[in-house]
Amino acid sequence: MKEQIPAIQSQALAQIASVADERSLDEVRVAVLGKKGTLTQAAAGMKDVPKEEKAEVGQLLNAARTAITAALEEKQAALQAAADRAALAGIDVTLPARPPATGSLHPLIQIRDEAISILRRMGFALADGPEIEDEFHCFDALNTPADHPARNEKDTFYFDSGKLLRTHTSSVQIRTMESQPPPVRIIAPGSAYRRDEIDATHLSVFNQLEGLYVATDVSLPDLKGTLEYFFHELFGPETEVRFRPHFFPFTEPSFEIDVKLHVKGQAPRWIEVTGCGMVDPAVFDAVNASRKDKAYDPETTTGFAFGMGLDRLAMIRWGIKDIRLLIENDVRFLRQFA
């Protein structure tokens, strides 16, 4: 017995040293330490060891078990480390990715959301109205004379019913004021329609963002401050903004807003981005008549309104030269906005 244990030990250690994989190592473990393993059987022979030798044999057994276990663990660790090394070797991180499908929001929606976010931050709530409108909301209530050129069948889409496709989102101003008393502080993004042949700068269906603020003591400084803030947020705080007097039937005074566009390699230039003005008292009169009350008394109620072309803002923002790219939905175009 005293001879047998060291032999088992040295044989086991030699076997452990020689194995090359975890499975063989496990076989060695079972062959030595398993139920029928050599060392286990040797330990089972303890009962036959003379009493005076028990302590010594016991020590030998313990020492052998400790040494073998340690060798097994060490080998196990070494084999695992080698396997880990092998598993990582030869992996080329510079190979191309496994591409997931990518998508994007349409650029028009992106710029629209940016504009809406800025204005909502300024306390504007969203509003909308029908795109198939009547003449009252699209023209009459907006102080547009009965024989105004915009009402022509050559410029506006009509239906047999006499209704029309709204030529601007300004009709939402009327719809909103009809349905609620002041203060009104709304923005209305939406489609508008004009009988323009589609070309690089025109679409017969285009997108606008309308704004209206009506309360008491709304003034030109409010109009100016609000829209300056808006364009500084949209195009950067250094952006130069100017207000040019203009004419719209439903605002007075009316202005067009230009921002100075800086494009690399081009001389900076002013580009028109928005029409705006103080709500014409005639609009309030029309709203009151429709509401059958005096909620919008022109003597005490003032307001400003603005409207901008979102397609145009998108073209400015990304230097898009042909507006048709915005409706053709070519993946090669859309992918750039992912």
Binding site: M122, G123, F124, A125, L126, A127, P183, V184, R185, I186, Y213, A215, S219, L220, P221, D222, K224, G225, T226, E228, Y229, R242, F243, P245, F255
Partner: peptide
Amino acid sequence: GLAKVPSRLHGSFVPSS
């Protein structure tokens, strides 16, 4: 000219719709 008009930033709060 609007250049000579001061800018003002204020407005009523309105509920969301």
